[in-house]
């Protein structure tokens, strides 16, 4: 997907429950609908722009882009160097970029592990990873990742040896951190697409490792 790719399908309002499904709307959803309706009515916002932005958040941005970046870095050492030196320019080569996308890439190696948190709210590299998972926005993750990261990692099933140098990045400015995971052994002959399929969101936040299926 390139930066100028357009979705022509009408995603408008599909975000609210469709009339056919008859799920009872929660009070919050009703308030959200009322807010949109009142703002549209007053001409403060227009539906087409809201549709475009929401669709970008949900479909145009996402961890499939992050996985492509990682797979490219694993198979092209010159790209990897550019990615670590200037993440924005490197991901733009793959047509990736946008709001909340001022990215710095930090590299995991056998001796160093990086993980990312936003203690102040939920800052996250949208173009590469899409919307953050619920746990990333939770009080438990935000409060503990900077104080007891190994305990948090264990809850994700990641056990780090005491000798591994652990670096926790707190996204307090406009820089968005992205973890380049360590390439697992046994993947030497794999293609970029095969590699990309191994890489999940947690590995690029640093709460997971990449392993063979």
């Amino acid at each position: 997907m390139t930066a100028d790719h357009d979705h022509d399908d009408d995603h408008g309002h599909s975000h609210y429950d469709t009339p056919g499904s008859r799920r009872a709307r929660s009070q919050l959803e009703l308030r959200a609908m009322a807010l949109e309706a009142a703002l549209v009515e007053n001409g403060v916002i227009h539906t087409d722009a809201i549709d475009f932005f929401t669709d970008a958040m949900e479909h145009r941005f996402g961890p499939h882009h992050g996985a492509r970046v990682v797979a490219r870095a694993w198979t092209d050492s010159a790209f990897k160097q550019r990615l670590l030196d200037d993440g924005n320019a490197a991901v733009a080569e793959l047509g990736i970029g946008g709001l909340e996308g001022n990215v710095r890439v930090v590299e995991n190696t056998p001796g160093t592990h990086n993980m990312v948190v936003c203690t102040l709210c939920s800052c996250y590299p949208w173009p590469l990873l899409g919307l953050p998972p619920l746990w990333y926005k939770s009080f438990a993750y935000r409060s503990r990742a900077v104080a007891e990261p190994r305990a948090v990692l264990r809850e994700f099933g990641v056990e780090l040896d005491d000798s591994v140098r652990l670096q926790v990045w707190d996204s307090s400015s406009e820089v968005r951190y992205f973890v380049l995971p360590d390439r697992p052994e046994g993947t030497e002959g794999m293609s970029e697409d095969e590699l990309a399929a191994l890489i999940d969101r947690n590995a690029m936040i640093g709460t997971g490792l990449v392993s063979l299926p």
Partner: peptide, 21 residues
Amino acid sequence: SVDVAAVESGHDGWEARAQVV
């Protein structure tokens, strides 16, 4: 502890839209 299985809220559609609005 962190609820590591909590990825999506189940009503992300309107929540994402509400954030955008």
